[in-house]
Design a protein around this nucleic acid. Structure first.
Lengths: 108, 108
DNA sequence: CTTCCATTTCAACCAGAATTGAAATATCCG
DNA sequence: CGGATATTTCAATTCTGGTTGAAATGGAAG
């Protein structure tokens, strides 16, 4: 992930409705959720949810797939991993003080 | 780190000038950089740099300390770690697909 | 105390993001 | 085909964030 991509991803996440949507999708797991279900979960109108889901989609943080009448969204785990990798390894040079906070350690 | 804090931190990072400033500060390490040096590093006016540094400070991502005439900023590594921890463990439930991307593994 | 330098604060302005509701599109079913 | 449901698109408005340059603050040195 490069700088512009990271910026797009961070911007997408830096919003209550969208962060909430991501978390709902994470809870839902690989099954994902329909746009309507997400709207309900985050307490937004259909049009509002659609708007925010587009932003997440453009940032590559979710995938979408039409299933009959519904459109099913799923979180793109790999992309979130890439963002964290960017923050951790690119941006912060894997600084121990950063890594120490995550319940993680460098892969030996 | 809770939701509002994460949102503040993400918003702070979701800006080219500020992400650039953080990276400059990471490169500078524990010594940190003066506000003027950061302004120069990110190609911004003093007032612009000050504005952005305030945002980073409010988000807890940097610390500031007056040293004679200069004000020295340092990156708050622990805070960045906490944000990553939030994204990784709280938000993404430590999903292996996320963790796998970071050259890290769960602490055994 | 005056001057100079680094930085912040302030107010005005501009641009992009969010919200809203209505209209359009796509799918399914009778 | 025609009606119902799910979702997106669009345009208009509002709001927030960013930029700019001038003025104010805080500290150091003569």
């Amino acid at each position: 992930m490069d700088d512009p991509d990271a910026l797009t991803a961070l911007s997408a996440l830096a919003n209550p409705a969208r962060l909430s949507a991501i978390r709902a999708l994470v809870r839902a797991g690989p099954t994902g959720l329909s746009a309507g279900a997400i709207a309900k979960a985050i307490g937004a109108s259909p049009s509002q949810a659609s708007f925010h889901l587009s932003a997440l989609y453009d940032a590559g943080l979710v995938t979408s797939e039409r299933q009959a009448r519904e459109i099913r969204y799923r979180v793109a785990f790999a992309r979130i991993g890439a963002l964290i990798d960017y923050l951790l390894n690119d941006c912060c040079a894997g600084d121990p003080a950063v890594v120490a906070c995550c319940g993680l350690r460098s892969k030996g």
